[in-house]
């Protein structure tokens, strides 16, 4: 079984197009300037408020994670692997994987600095994160 692919919707298409180009695009509320994730048509901070797309810096820190020992279908080759939640420099958090480092409790230290990179999968690209400084 192959790894699952996201199926973009109109409100998320820009995010996935950005990923395919090697860029992390997120949104912010035009009124308040606050960033949020995941993509949507209206601001979660102002009812009906306009939103705009912004290219994120790609810098993040490790907010939390677990290490999956019973892998999802298609992920048998990776187990054990971390399901991580990172906090982007802009504020929003997203789930991701940590690459470029063995996924062990010793290596994965909360608040460690991370940098976005992209995993190619069947014509799409997924934002994943690697240590910002080589371990």
């Amino acid at each position: 079984m192959s790894k699952p692919l996201p199926r973009p919707t109109p409100e998320t298409q820009r995010f996935w197009d950005g990923a395919a180009a090697g860029e992390l695009w997120i949104q912010r509320c035009v009124t308040t300037g606050r960033y949020f994730f995941y993509p949507r048509d209206y601001s979660p901070f102002v009812t009906g408020g306009a939103v705009e797309w912004v290219k994120a810096s790609g810098n993040a820190t490790l907010y939390s994670y677990n290490i999956v020992h019973r892998p999802a279908p298609g992920f048998e080759d990776r187990a054990p692997y971390a399901l991580a939640v990172v906090e982007l420099e802009e504020g929003p958090r997203m789930m991701t994987n940590i690459v470029g480092i063995e996924n062990t409790p010793e290596n994965l230290i909360l608040d460690m600095a991370l940098r976005v990179t992209f995993e190619q999968r069947d014509g799409m690209a997924l934002p994943v994160f690697e240590p910002a400084v080589a371990a």
């Binding site: 996201p6 199926r7 998320t12 939390s64 999956v68 019973r70 892998p71 990776r78 399901l83 939640v85």
Partner: peptide
């Protein structure tokens, strides 16, 4: 779109993410 592609394998892998 935003979690399953990273290898979510049921509730044991989602519900536990916040604990660390």
């Amino acid at each position: 779109q935003f979690e399953a592609p990273y290898g979510v394998a049921g509730f044991a892998t989602m519900f536990t993410v916040p604990v660390l």
